[in-house]
Design a protein around this nucleic acid. Structure first.
Length: 415
DNA sequence: TCTGGGGTCCTAGGACCC
DNA sequence: TCTGGGGTCCTAGGACCC
């Protein structure tokens, strides 16, 4: 039974923007945005003008005419993000990384070595500042949820420790939007019955709450509002799906557009699946139309796949189904492929990869083998000469894409 | 004035089986 | 022929998070 606050939530402040200001001192103290067409990250100086991540670049410039856009040093983001997490690793092996710039750590087992959690958190902040030159905020509490909220409250560049004796006093005055799982839609629904603070949520009638946002979400939020968060740290999470998408602007919904795009997306996804020996059974595509309404189609196969051509063909059939069901839609603005139901691990399999099993049993197996051989050859060339060395000819699409591949890779989860 | 890309989880209906 | 219940899997969509 834990009665003390030993969970840290550490979150690098305005991470990409802070790295840019670190690398180029002339940017320090100035409103900057990482990105171009879309703001990937904004410095606190830029946020003061209302600039936010995800905002279109044009709107950001309107809000802040002196805003400086900088190109992304993606390799440095990865390096510095890893280095910050490594500082946590120096204190405890119980670290759960959430993303490139954020992690939980439980220091219950190392206080005899390093002192109380608050001191450990202060040390982490000092070291990240001294060794990496980056600001990092940390929340310390008895549960993950409360530690995460505390780090949000601590920002920028702060430390907030929530004493177990005053948890609810701390929590109940805060707005519900700080809670994990409360986004714009849930926030609006809660507001419709007069709930704006976490305290009001805690006091609300459970039946009314569950009718409003569903039983699962209702019970979960009610528990969190009383700081009943049963979640343990998970140090070895693996992804349950892998996908790729591409915004297209406005393109005609014809095969000349979607076939090459799907091949490129399938290549991105399937090569990752192969690299980690995790083929998957369920293929999902998403098609977004001109008005930004999106439709998805999925199919679950008998056997898991990781061959690029098989994934591309499956996705193509699904997309044709979507378009056939929406004959009025002549323009598409986004295509996505995702593979789920991933095989737990293919490490123990023999040399022949999963995903070929079905093809091998069929008379046409030579085709599947040939395709797998082709993928293997491509994978090997890329290993030696880099990703650009060989691929599917969609040069025109590459140029049109708004987000560079390096940025995509930062967001990929470990498969 | 309509935000990109990588993910997770929940819901609800239908198929299918026992 | 109708009645009843429960479990699992699949599909489509939505909300959310970083």
């Amino acid at each position: 039974m834990e009665t003390s606050a030993t969970i840290l939530h550490a979150d690098l402040d305005a991470f990409y923007a802070s790295v840019e200001q670190l690398l180029d001192p002339s940017l320090r103290g100035k409103p900057i945005a990482v990105g171009g067409g879309v703001v990937l990250a904004a410095s606190y100086e830029a946020r003061a003008f209302g600039v936010r991540g995800g905002m279109p670049g044009r709107k950001a410039r309107e809000l802040c005419p002196q805003l400086i856009f900088v190109g992304g040093h993606f390799g440095d983001y990865q390096r510095l993000g890893d280095a910050a997490i490594k500082v946590l690793d120096d204190f405890t092996p119980l670290v759960e990384r959430i993303s490139i710039d954020e992690a939980f750590a439980d220091v219950a087992g190392c206080t005899h070595l390093f002192g109380p959690p608050a001191e450990i958190a202060a040390s982490v902040r000092r070291r990240v500042r001294a060794e990496l030159g980056l600001p990092i905020s940390i929340g310390v509490a008895r549960t993950k949820h409360l530690a995460k909220i505390a780090s949000q409250v601590a920002k920028p560049d702060g430390l907030v420790v929530v004493d177990p004796a005053s948890e609810l006093a701390f929590l109940h005055d805060l707005p519900v939007s700080l809670m994990w799982g409360v986004g714009p839609a849930t926030r609006a629904r809660l507001a419709s019955i007069g709930i704006e603070t976490i305290g009001q949520l805690a006091q609300s009638h459970s039946g009314a709450l569950e009718r409003l946002i569903g039983p699962a979400a209702g019970q979960k939020l009610a528990a969190l509002a009383w700081n009943r968060d049963p979640r343990r740290l998970e140090t070895h999470r693996r992804a349950h799906s892998a996908g790729a998408q591409s915004a297209l602007g406005r393109k005609p919904a014809v095969a000349d557009v979607f076939v090459p795009t799907l091949l490129h997306l399938a290549d991105r996804v399937a090569s990752r699946l192969r690299a980690k020996h995790r083929p998957g059974r369920t293929v999902t595509v998403r098609v977004r139309f001109a008005d930004l309404r999106a439709v998805s189609r999925s199919i679950t196969l008998d056997q898991p796949i990781s061959v690029t051509a098989m994934l591309a063909e499956t996705a193509e059939e699904l997309v044709r189904g979507v378009l056939a069901a929406h004959p009025g839609e002549k323009v598409i603005s986004l295509l996505a492929i995702s593979v789920s139901h991933l095989e737990e691990s293919a490490e123990l399999q023999l040399e022949l990869p999963l995903g070929l099993a079905d093809e091998r049993r069929r008379p046409g197996s030579k085709r599947g083998l040939a395709r797998f051989g082709a993928d293997r050859a491509v994978d090997k060339i890329r290993q030696r000469f880099g990703k650009q060395a060989v691929g599917y000819g969609v040069v025109a699409l590459e140029a049109a894409r708004s987000v560079p591949d390096e940025f995509r890779e930062l967001a990929e989860k470990e498969l």
